[in-house]
Design a protein around this nucleic acid. Structure first.
Lengths: 249, 249
DNA sequence: CGTAGTGTTGAGTAAGATCAACTGGTGTGG
DNA sequence: CCACACCAGTTGATCTTACTCAACACTACG
């Protein structure tokens, strides 16, 4: 059976990166009622201050979470890759505190909140996997606060590129240390708290240092260790091992 | 019965701010085995890269979560007030991605991970309340990324002060719009991504604008609405209503 | 073939960092 | 009780990072 026939397989794989799921647990997830929507770049799936009874899972393409300050400045607070849940939090919170927007055209599997709630209630392993998923997202947010708060422009840009490299590789979506990043420099700036002009200069600087090569939006790392050092990157915060702590249940 | 005799009552109150708990749910939390420790300012309760089988709840005093960059720069990523769980995430994740340190002297109720896990497994309402708690923390982190990434120094400082005002008030720990913030300007800087010198200047600027008054570390807001506007503060992200979404379970 | 979006580069500016000095409170030891 | 050290806060002067404004190049697309 092809992935196209089993869209939620991607969610299963994503959860299994960090939490153990038996075959029957996985089947329970795959069996969740859903329908697939193809969304254009720029489409919102959740809007800040809204309430929604559905929960999307990204199947193809990229998306991001964003918040807007009262001055109208945008901050991108997460970038989502295929297999990520777009709005797990809406299962438990009434009103969304941020928006989710498609970065590229892509497919989203739409689940009903009630179905997900029922599955979490009835299946402890799935509940644990979702918990690990949510906690990992919080961990990434802490790293982003550190990134934006303490690192220089060059370090920030380098760190973002490293994070994608590892996340995409872990998800099986990219070759080792070479991938296409489908973001404009303006969007990268909104993720890093920098202006697009400065992002451009920092990317050029990384290039001049021989740390990355770019052709169109494909990034490569000729010297991963050096890149890692410049970025101050340590993947611990991604929690990329199967977490055993919940296993005593 | 006094609070001193029921330390976990504070946790119950904190959870009840955002999730419904019946009296028996609350009793189940209060009955969790625990012992109280008095910790001095600066004591670590969790260290980055460590694993620990316990989970603390702050009873009195303040604490904060912090991360350190490879250059040695510190970023404070959360400030914790009485009633907050210090390391709920360690219940499901194997290795901590950040440290937790006491900001002031204070008491911590130490719970065993296995006990908390068992309670979450057996009591759906408590599990939901914990989930809401974790999701709210993630929401605050998103707001902090926005704060550090997009706002000016003055706005950042103002926003932090507003956040504490509302959180302390919601927890019943401070008068309306006047409280003691037991942080040095250096610590405030580490939370905002600013140097202590600049924090000092921004606080003075807020004072000069008539937005705050300070005596020692007590802050007051003579004009809350104006302060709120300068900070671009909207408390939506604190999710300070009882969340009904999980109720259909 | 024109237009719009993205990337690139240069020149001037401003927010915040750095360095350094000094204040006032607090605690400690002689 | 005083001398001293230490820490937090404050202020000034200078420097640097990143922002702003502006122009131009390249590509995709109608």
């Amino acid at each position: 059976m092809k992935i196209a026939d089993q869209p939620l397989e991607l969610l299963v794989r994503s959860l299994r990166l960090r939490a153990p799921l038996s075959d029957s647990d996985a089947d329970a997830i795959r069996a969740l009622p859903h329908n697939i929507k193809l969304l254009e770049a720029g489409t919102y799936t959740v809007r800040e201050a809204d309430s929604t009874p559905v929960c999307g899972v990204l199947i193809s393409g990229f998306a991001y979470r964003q918040k807007t300050s009262s001055d109208g400045d945008r901050q991108i607070v997460s970038v989502l890759i295929p297999g990520d849940a777009l709005d797990l939090q809406n299962i438990f919170l009434d009103v969304s505190d941020h928006s989710v927007q498609m970065l590229t055209r892509g497919e989203v599997a739409v689940l009903q909140r009630a179905d997900v709630q029922a599955l979490i209630r009835d299946n402890a392993a799935v509940a644990r996997a979702m918990m690990v998923n949510i906690l990992t997202e919080a961990s990434i947010l802490r790293e982003w606060v550190l990134n934006v708060g303490q690192r220089s422009g060059k370090e920030r840009a380098a760190h973002l590129l490293c994070e994608f490299a590892i996340r995409l590789k872990a998800a099986g979506l990219a070759d080792q240390y070479a991938y296409e990043l489908p973001m404009t420099q303006e969007q990268i700036g909104d993720a890093l708290g920098l202006t697009p002009v400065h992002v451009n200069r920092m990317l050029k600087a990384l290039q001049a240092d021989g740390l990355i090569t770019r052709t169109k939006r494909v990034v490569q790392f000729p010297n991963w260790e050096a890149m890692r050092n410049v970025a101050g990157f340590n993947e611990r915060y991604l929690h990329l091992e199967v977490q055993r702590n919940g296993m005593s249940l």
